[in-house]
Every structure is written in C-alpha cells, then in structure tokens.
Design a protein around this nucleic acid. Structure first.
Lengths: 218, 218, 218, 218
DNA sequence: AATGAATGAGTCTTCATTCAT
DNA sequence: TATGAATGAAGACTCATTCAT
C-alpha cells in the first residue's frame, strides 16, 4: 500500500507516546474526546479544557501527551490516515472483477465506515500546517488506488482519464457522510441515491473504451 | 432675527445622501473583506480587527454597521441567500423542456456562479444560531425548486422520489466548487466530469417514471 | 525562555506606537511600571498582569502597545540605550583635558545617572534574543568612546591597550550601582572608594607611556 | 575561620542526606545538572524536568533528594558556601606578609577558582528567601576575612576603613568572572588588567596608614 | 461619524509538585 | 526506590466589544 502513514517532518508537534498501560488508555480517551468535540463544534470552537474534561482527565494530562492543540489534531489526522489505509486496502482487495454497481456499493460502504473519523478531521485539515502537508499525499494515494481499480477494470482508459474519474468518484463519495446525516427515515433512501449516482458514473467510466469500440451508448 | 436657524428639511435630506452612499460603499467593502477572510481562514480564525483593516476602516467603523461578529456573518448569509434566489430564478426560468445533459449544465453553471459567495458562508453557517435558522429554509427552497423542475419534466415521480433526487442532485452540485479549486489545467476536465455525473443521475431520475409507465412494478 | 528557542525569521517584537496623547502617557506609564518591577523582582518573576496593574491599566491595554513580554523588555532596553547614548555624549563632551581623578568622577557620575535604568534592564538582557543582539553593539560603542578618551589623553596607548583598559574601566564602573545599593550611611564612603579605585587605574593607564619611558614596571 | 559551613537552622527544605554511595553520586549529578542549567538559562527559566533529564534521572528521583526547586537551589548555595570557605581559608593562610600585587593575584585566583560555582548561584541568590538569608552572612564573612588581612598588613586602618576597602575589593573581584568570559584571546590581558586595578587599589589601602603616620592629613 | 484606545473574560500552555505502580 | 503519569494553579496572550475624543 502506498499511503504514507507518517511523515518525517520533525516538529514539536509530535505527540509523546505513553510508556505505560495507563497512559495508552488516556491517549485513546483523549483522542476520542477530541474527535467527538471537533466533529460537534469544530476545531477552533473546541477548547482544550473541554477535551480534557470530556475524557475525564486534567488539563495537564492532556498536555502530557499532546504538547499543543495542533499536535492533538495531527495525531487525530494520523489515526484517520491509518484507518483510511486499512479500509482502502479492504476495498482494493475485493474490487477486482466487480461491475459498476457492486463497486459503487463497496466504495460507499468504505466511506460510511470512515464517516465518524472523517467528521473529526475535516474541520481543521485545511487550516493546520502540519496536517495540510499530510493531506494531499493521503488524498493522492486514495485517488491512485481508485484510478488503479478503474484501469484494471477497463484497460482502455488513459492515465488522465482514470485520474480525473478517480477524482470525481472521490467527490461523489464525499456526499455519503453528508447524506448519512439526514433524518433517520430519509437516510437510507438517500444513501441509495448515492449508490445509484456513483454506479451510473462508474458504469460510464468502465464503458468508456467499450462505448468507443461499440460505437454508441446504450 | 431674520437668520434662519434651521435648514429646510429638503436640504438636510440632501446633505445626508452622500453620506448614505458612502455608508453603502463602506458596508459593501466590509462585507467583501469579511467574505474574503472567512473563506481564507475560517470564521473563528478571522478577527474583527483584520476585517476592518482589510477594508481600510477602523474597528469602530465596523461596529457602527455590524453590532457583532455574528451580525456580520448574518448579513453575509443574507447577501448569499439573495444571490442564490436570483440565480435560482434564472435556473427555474430556463429549465422547462431541457433534457438531462443541458439541465445538468445549467445547474453546474449556477453553482459555479455562486461559488465565491458560498465559500465565504459555509464555514460559519452551521455554528451561528441566527444563520442556522435561515440555512435550512434556504436549502429547502432550493431543493423544492429542483424537485419541481424534476416533477415537471417527469410527472411520474412521487413527491418523495423527487425530493430525494433533489437532495442527491444538490450534493453532486456541491462537488463543483471543490473541483473548481483544482489546478488550472485539470479544472476544466474535472468540471466536465461533474457535468457528466450529474447528467447521468438526472437522466436516470427523468427516466424513472417512464420505466414505471412502460410497465414497471406499480 | 526566549533564548533556547530557535529564533524565528521575523519576530513580531516591535512595540506598536500610540497615535494619541492618551496612548503616549499609557506607554510611558507601562514602561515605568515594567522597569520598576523588573528591577525589583526580575524579568521572569514579574507577571504582565502585575505590570498592567501597577500602571493602572488593564492587561489588554498593556498588550495593545507591547505585543509580548519580550517586546516590553526590548522597548525598555531601547529606552536605556537612548539614555545611555545621551549620557555618554555628555561624558565625551567634557572629558578632554581631564586628569585621572576628575575623569573617574565623571564616569562614576555617568553610571550613577543611569543606575535605575540599568537596574531595570540587566536581569533580562542576557536572556532575550532581540535584546542580546542589541547588547553587544551598545557595550562596544561605550567601550569605543572610553577607549577614544583614553587615547586622546595618552597617545602612547596602542589600540589594544586602550580597548583592554576601556573594558576594565567599564567593569569597575559596574561596581557603582552595586555600591550605591548599600545602606544609607555606607553608600557615600563606598562610592568614594569606587572613585578612588577607578582614578588609580585610569592614572596608571594614562601614565602607561610615561612609565615605560621612565622605566617603571610594565 | 568564621564562615559557617552548615547553617544551624533546620528546615524541611534541607536536602535529605543520601545514605548510600549510589545516592551521593546521584545527588552530585543532580546538583551539577542544576548548576549548569541555572548558569546557562537562569533559575526561573530552568525546569525541574530539564534538570532531571540532564542528569539522567527521572523527575521522581529528583524530588526524592530535593523536595522542591528551592531546596535544590539551597543545596547548591550550600555547596558554593563550603567551597568558598575552603578557598578563602587558602587565601587567609598565605596572605600574611604579601604586598599589594601578590595579594591582588591571590584574590583574583581565588575568584577564578570559584567562578563556575558562582555562575550557578548568582541568578537565584537574591530571590529565594532561604538563600537570601544565607547570602549576607557569607558575604560578610568573606569581607571580614579580607578586612582582617588588610588590617594585619596595615594596622593604621580603622575598622570602618578596612571594611569599606574590603567591600570595594570584593566588588573589583567580581569583575573577574565577567572578564574571564571574554573571547579566548582577550581573556588573559583582561584578567591582567583586573590584577593591576586590584593591586593599585590595595596598594593605596595598605599605604593609607603610612601616609597618616608620615604626616598626611588626620 | 470616525477613530483607536480600553477592557477583561476566556484560551492555550507551562511546570512545580504529588501519587500510583 | 525508581519511574513517569496526574494534577491544577498560574501566566502569557487574544479578541470581541465598548468608550472617549
């Protein structure tokens, strides 16, 4: 897998790793509290004190492991990147041979699985320098995998076509978390719409060569 | 005793006119500065002092027109809502009779036109109470118009179907501003992908009734 | 605190200057309060809140003009440097033609005049990056003036001799503020000792050529 | 010798006596680390954690031996006081019979020997209550010894004269550590200047009675 | 009206010190 | 004893908002 899990820009932003079991639990609790609050109220509006309180720790304990608010955000992003890598590998493993509809479903499910992690990360990922740096590589890696899936399903695609399609697919996938936020009773139908829209687009992409070869769209 | 102690009412009003005009300019400049900064760094990260500075005004002047930061945001949202209404009317006017592809283009162009306004507004529109209130009605109005367009193009759609489709269309439309942020040379191809994806989805929606009419399950 | 961190490219240490009479008074009061407290308890042990309180201002007002504690220290140092320059010019103006004893007195009086300013500045001048940079040039300038006075009084001195003597004279002068801190009744005798010691040393320096010529010990 | 090597005031601040060789080594390492850091960055700017790290101990270990930062400072001061006493005794032992120049050299060498210890102690010795208390007695003891040396070399000196001279000599001696901080190639010449200045002053002091005896002003 | 100084509650962050393992 | 996590008071600094000129 080509996703960079951690970059080596040595900053003081690095979260200090706990050396005892107690510390590991703390760190996980702190990350969860931070994730929840960032998702709820946004990065700027969330205070470090709130995060500490929600995870049942003193403010000093929070700073013991995350030397700054940005460091916490970065750690959260790293966790998100790792989970993304894992989930994406899952997709890559079962994508071969799938037609547009099941492939669309696979991608939508991938997005649903990462939903809450992503919610915690989106708000700050364009405003914190250390995260901004990591963001593009991660996004590019995801796109590359999707493009690869497309090309292996349709060898008539050029690199440019596959890449552009991967970008568009990524964008359609981003609608999933939004739709999943809808009222309980409209959530499912909406996600079905996303599956449909994505399947239609993927079908078009996979047919691109065939269409040309066959000489017209159905 | 013959000296007039009071100017005529007409004269007073006339004297106020240039000041009002100047005020309008200043208000517009302040809104623009706020919009630009909110888009650049986000609502929370932007300070009132910065906004005043960028528009060449003193902080006191800013507060003369907008009694609070939230009020400024609200004004910005209102401006966005008005422009949305205008642009949407434009869409509604020329939608009738269009097939899926040109309709998709129309909607994509609508989104492109509102792009910068939206950038200024998205960041805070879920965190400021007064704006949150206005947001849903605006979004619902847009969805209703799109649903209406869909139903008038395909009278076989139920209300629920049209609404769900309108939501999905709205979401696909949201990808447009993101794609438009791409590098100069990939921007156009990407927007074409958005047009394609949207057209495919709309085509499916417009065909839905036909399928049923032609003998699908009741 | 300030020193161990890598100096960032452009530090925003510059004190903002007031544009209104009110502000100028404030700035002076703040500088005085800072000077007094730094002299009393040291830089690190003095809090910004204390400084604001002592000068009758709100903490925000302090930060209006001095964007950081370091900036305040720097401003204080700048004021000290200016006063040093003025006082030194005074010395330079009346040094020509003086013999060792009156010259020593002149230098001791110069040090006494700058005493309180120096007290405010010594504690932090070796730990704040921006000040450390300015310190050496100032000290060198003072030494250069003293060396020049020595050489014009004894043209048999080499540059190196004059410089070394200037350094030593500077050091003896530094004892003055310390001695001046003594109990009321021992202060005067002690300062007389300083005048004596300084006069003896200067006499030796001014005689250097003569001594050599006459054959005394080098 | 009248210097108190150990203060009789028992406080909880007093460092716990290490009972094992291991502990003594650790205590020495901690004191050295503290001394180095206090000299480098000052007392306030140095953290307990840093001290522990530099000496390779855990923060908990540091507190095992020194129950507070002040206690560490006090221990450091005590060590300095002991070394001062030893060095001073050395001076006292060989001072009798010396003329001004060798006496000055002796005193300068004494100061050079204690230099690094003093650097570690100066910064906090005026701000920590427990140390402030000990400081004056130590300084007075040193002055008393110097005054005694002066009086035994010149029995024409009054107590007041001898004391004032001792203070001045102490101040001139303080210039030695500063001069010793100069660049490698100017260090030696500068220290020679200090020897010279001190010798001149001492010579004057030792002559004082003679002048009176010989018929100077009463 | 316009300007910029004044205000102070609220944030992030530090660090001496205590405590559990 | 040794270790390092936990604690929270305290300090630097920010910024929306108000006020005086």
């Amino acid at each position: 897998m080509s996703i960079p899990r951690k970059m080596s820009i040595e900053t003081q932003l690095a979260a200090k790793e706990p050396k005892r079991a107690r510390g590991k639990l703390r760190v996980a609790a702190l990350l969860d509290a931070g994730a929840a609050l960032f998702a709820e109220k946004g990065y700027e509006a969330t205070t470090m004190t709130e995060i500490a309180q929600r995870s049942g720790a003193a403010i000093g304990s929070l700073y013991q492991f995350f030397p700054s608010k940005d460091a916490l955000a970065e750690a959260l992003f790293n966790r998100y990147a790792e989970r993304t890598a894992t989930a994406l590998q899952h997709v890559v493993d079962r994508a071969p041979g799938l037609s547009s509809a099941p492939l669309a479903d696979l991608l939508v499910d991938y997005k649903l699985a990462l939903r809450s992690d992503r919610d915690a990360v989106v708000d700050f990922s364009s405003s914190i320098a250390a995260v901004v740096e990591r963001r593009k590589p991660l996004r590019d890696a995801v796109r590359r995998e999707i493009a690869a899936i497309l090309r292996s399903a349709n060898d008539g695609l050029t690199d440019e076509q596959a890449t552009a399609a991967a970008v568009m697919i990524g964008e359609i996938m981003k609608t999933v978390p939004m739709l999943a936020k809808a009222e309980e009773d409209s959530r499912l139908p909406l996600i079905i719409q996303a599956r449909t829209a994505l399947a239609l687009y993927i079908e078009r992409v996979l047919d691109a060569g065939a269409v040309r070869r066959r000489g017209g769209r159905s």
